[in-house]
């Protein structure tokens, strides 16, 4: 596990406010007859860093993908930044432009340069002038430490660099919430660190984050809450210390013993 990230985290800006960023109540989802998400209740406050863990197939990715409607939920209610997710396309596009998402496989646009990847959505969705969008993009590319790659194509970059570009691309939309869907699962160990460092620095700036990840070091260092899911439901949630040192549910104990045991 990536323990080295733990020591140097600056917690001064990591403050959780009372303002509710995401409110999920009694959310249920089915794939056909298969009940993937069962009675999910989750309240995320502004500034929270939540790590979602669990075995594969437990519904963790599906849950965060419901938050920006990449997946549709069939029952219950999701309110993001005060806007309820319904079938209204206007609301969906509004929420999507406020909520950044980083994928396991980066999903950069291979036919556009790094800079174009970053400026596309600000220019076409936010109607930001091109010059300004490019300046913002360069700012965030510097932040993820790859401004020199701006004019290359995604295919010319390593996996870790691509994932950092993907993070910069999301940040260019100035999102209020960031969703991370297993951002390091497709990376080599060396590259995992550079991506996690980027995520840590985001957390240090007080971004509201939901991360589906298996990086327990990151969870311990950055998260203020760890959620454990199994069989489509939230089995246990707690602050990281208590979660790792004193898990309550049998399923959590088994899971932790398996991933931390070696």
């Amino acid at each position: 596990m990536q323990q080295q990230a733990t020591e140097t985290v600056d917690r001064s800006q990591m403050t959780v406010s009372d303002e509710v960023a995401i409110q999920i109540t009694k959310m249920n989802k089915w794939y056909g007859n298969f009940h993937v998400l069962r009675d999910i209740d989750l309240t995320v406050h502004r500034g929270e860093r939540i790590v979602i863990a669990g075995p594969s197939g437990s519904g963790k990715s599906t849950m965060i993908r419901c938050i920006n409607r990449l997946e549709e939920h069939q029952a219950g209610k999701i309110v993001v930044d005060g806007t309820e997710l319904g079938s209204d396309l206007k609301n969906i596009d509004k929420i999507r432009s406020e909520v950044g998402m980083v994928f396991q496989h980066f999903n950069l646009f291979p036919h556009l340069t790094i800079l174009e990847n970053c400026t596309l959505a600000p220019i076409w969705v936010r109607k930001v002038p091109k010059k300004e969008a490019e300046a913002t993009a360069m700012h965030f590319l510097e932040k993820v430490k790859i401004p020199e790659q701006a004019h290359k194509y995604p295919g010319q970059l390593s996996g870790g660099q691509q994932q950092r570009v993907a993070i910069a691309r999301s940040l260019c939309m100035k999102p209020r919430i960031m969703l991370f869907d297993e951002p390091t699962s497709a990376l080599d160990p060396e590259m995992i660190k550079e991506v996690l460092d980027t995520m840590v620095s985001l957390a240090e700036e007080g971004m509201t984050m939901l991360c589906v990840t298996h990086e327990m070091g990151f969870a311990q260092a950055v998260a203020n809450r760890v959620i454990f899911m199994d069989a489509g439901q939230i089995v246990e949630q707690n602050e990281p210390k208590a979660f790792f040192n004193n898990p309550q549910h049998e399923r959590t104990k088994l899971f932790l013993s398996q991933i931390l045991g070696h």
Binding site: R69, L70, F103, L120, W124
Partner: peptide
């Protein structure tokens, strides 16, 4: 890949824009 559609959606591009800017340039190629 499905990820291209999802990435375009996740950035808030509407259907026509995501087709015109992301999907069709690649599909036509």
């Amino acid at each position: 890949p499905k990820g291209q559609y999802e990435a375009a959606d996740a950035l808030g591009l509407d259907y026509w824009k995501s087709m015109r800017l992301i999907i069709l340039p690649q599909a036509l190629k």
